[in-house]
Design a binder for these strands. Structure first.
Lengths: 234, 234
DNA sequence: CGTGACGTTGACGAACTTCAACTCCTGTGG
DNA sequence: CCACAGGAGTTGAAGTTCGTCAACGTCACG
């Protein structure tokens, strides 16, 4: 494992730590371990004991659940500044899903024991962490609602809207998803198959709603997507 | 609104408060409002500002999400001793779903301001609350996985297993769901329709797996149900 | 004893998945 | 620099699951 030189500013964007001043951030950094994650690297595995809390510094990580029959679903994508694995670790439970780097990435992690100390010393960190868990709770509640009633096209629209919010970058072509994503992954977000996603994107491309290519999606007409997401209007 | 005479022991079963001694529990009770909930009463509505934290003392409450097209999904059922509405309130957000009493029930609630004070004075209450939110997070994550790949029968099996764990009562006939539940509600838990649930239960009844009647379900062969839930074996 | 809410059952077909065969990139090693 | 291997994507056709429509039972309660 290599050690990487970093100055405290790398934690600036992190939800959990931007409430701290530079000195405290330096302290938080000092007690964590920074490491590179090559693309495809599995950071932790579903079922492993949750003994580490992670925060992404650069790149992109996906959280994937595998079911007994082997089918996978993408629970969420993690961007720079987001924490993951934290809830399981703090609750002393096994990780409920795998986490995999989808890009060459950089993370910092702490043994849960250390994170607990940090949270005691810096209660704002604990509060932020709880708030983030709360938001995820609501988001999952919405997803349960979506998955249990909506048609596939609508669910794919929802998934894509979510990606736009989380990883959308404005360009003159429209809003671009800023990391490479496959149809398979989009299917695993929407609870569908890569075939159906492929057909759906093809149709949206035809209608000028999106412009998609290999592992790359640009949303050209977000309003249409939003419409589909909550009316189901085609 | 009527006031109800209660002694502190009513909070004994409550996850959140059984860490407190009798005196502290009495204090917690004193600052809350106890009220009866007739069957069908809506306690709070999706979109309402979350300004109250609730705990069920007796009866049964369902948390239901309504989507723009009018379709509903049952997010969870609340039993005695469970909290609800708390996460939204503490996060100062609108309630993300309706809550409705499915039986004549009894609840206690606190303005969120008061709950925050209680949590400051009794940090164990805050810790319990966070742990409970964490468990719900994992449960929802699993449900997302289930809803996005599994076949209907398997999803209904999951829903029923969940009900057994939460509201199962051993009888000599098998394990009985201890509150009245309609096929419609089971369908809304499993992301299906009352028709499919009706057919599925009929088939299970034939095979001796369950014994269902009007708003009433007894599970006779839990192992078969568990098998179906995670193998998909029929 | 009538009026709703709840439940059942059959027929039908749309929506998707599954299967299969092909194409097109992209990176790698000879 | 080219060949080729494997990942990613496309597209048609076949097959199934399940939702939808419709009509009818039945239980509970006033």
């Amino acid at each position: 494992m290599m050690t990487v030189e970093l100055d405290p500013s790398v934690l600036t964007g992190a939800d959990l730590f931007d409430v701290l001043d530079a000195q405290d951030r330096a302290e938080v950094l000092r007690v964590g371990v920074v490491r590179r994650l090559p693309q495809g690297k599995r950071i932790f595995a579903q079922g492993d004991p949750g003994i580490t809390c992670h925060s992404l510094l650069e790149g992109r990580v996906k959280i994937v659940q595998t079911r007994p029959d082997g089918a996978q679903s993408v629970i969420r994508f993690i961007g720079p500044g987001e924490m993951y694995g934290t809830v399981a670790a703090l609750m002393d439970m096994p990780f409920p899903a795998d986490s995999v780097a989808v890009l060459d990435s950089l993370e910092i992690y702490w043994p849960v024991k250390v994170m607990r100390e940090l949270m005691t010393r810096f209660p704002q960190v604990a509060i932020r962490s709880a708030a983030s868990a709360g938001h995820r709770l609501f988001e999952l509640q919405n997803r349960v609602g979506e998955l249990s009633g909506e048609r596939v096209e609508q669910r794919i629209a929802h998934a894509l809207v979510r990606l736009v919010r989380q990883a959308g970058r404005r360009t003159d072509e429209g809003i671009e998803i800023d990391f490479p994503i496959t149809r398979q992954e989009l299917a695993e977000m929407a609870g569908s198959t890569l075939h159906t996603v492929s057909r759906t994107l093809a149709s949206w491309d035809d209608r000028g709603i999106t412009a998609s290519s290999r592992r790359h999606i640009v949303v050209r007409k977000l309003h249409v997507l939003l419409d589909m997401a909550d009316h189901g209007a085609s």
